[in-house]
Amino acid sequence: MSISVNKINKSYKNVQALKDISFDVKPGELFGIIGPDGAGKTTLFRVLTTLLIPDSGNATVSNFDIITDFKSIRNSVGYMPGKFSLYQDLTVEENLNFFANIFKTSIQENYDLIKDIYVQIEPFKNRRAGKLSGGMKQKLALCCALIHKPTVLFLDEPTTGVDPVSRKEFWNMLKRLQLTGLTILVSTPYMDEAALCDRIAFIQNGSILEIDTPNAILNHFSKKIYNISADNMYQLIESLKAYEHTYSAYPFGECIHYSDKRTDLKINELYEFLKLKGLDHIIIDQTKPSIEDTFMALAN
């Protein structure tokens, strides 16, 4: 196993940030930790990158123990913290050189690993890191985390605050990196990114709710999901919450995602109910459950 986590607990003063976390990541796997802000994702990353000591439990990264063998881990992993952590007053090239240097390597030595990403920021290599756009910053940070050819790559919310186009590019890069045999642990609050991982773990309030491949997780979801929209969205969700057969109803994009307690929902009945509530232009369609629907169901 590339990463093996066994019953990790970690508390801060009065919050338990991680509760009995256990999972394994296979070599070469792209493993996603999916959860909302404050779920414990960053704490988990800091424990695995030896920055924090867990209260109990143990874990290994590349078969090194995170407590007793932390030095070996620090030598061999790449870590990109959630906050942009490069030197803003150094240029792109200086940053990359600096990180290559502290890992006792050089840009030339591992150039092929970062080439695909670096060519995109190379035109700006004399620009200071602080003056780059969000997507550029992430690419540079990724280059810096990769420059020493790590065995495991830890990416803590790499796409938060990045525009959709850059996000997509970033995930394409991760997929390409995975082909080189690199193990990647990535966290994200975006459910749409979860589908791009080999396996995902849902995390909420410090506990893991479910670990599986994205497809298997979708199949776990037994209920049918309906897309509902109407002229007054606020009144629509209030009415649905008041409906006696409602299992769940939450906003999803421009519609409401609705699931029913019964196995066979009569669409007409629901339509009439909503009509009675004074709603108009009501559209009800069945749709495929997404990762987000699964998460909402699990988190309930």
Partner: peptide, 13 residues
């Protein structure tokens, strides 16, 4: 404060 210490710690330095 800038978080770069985190990266320096997870390095052979």
């Amino acid at each position: 404060e800038l978080g770069t210490m985190e990266v320096l710690l997870v390095s052979p330095l």
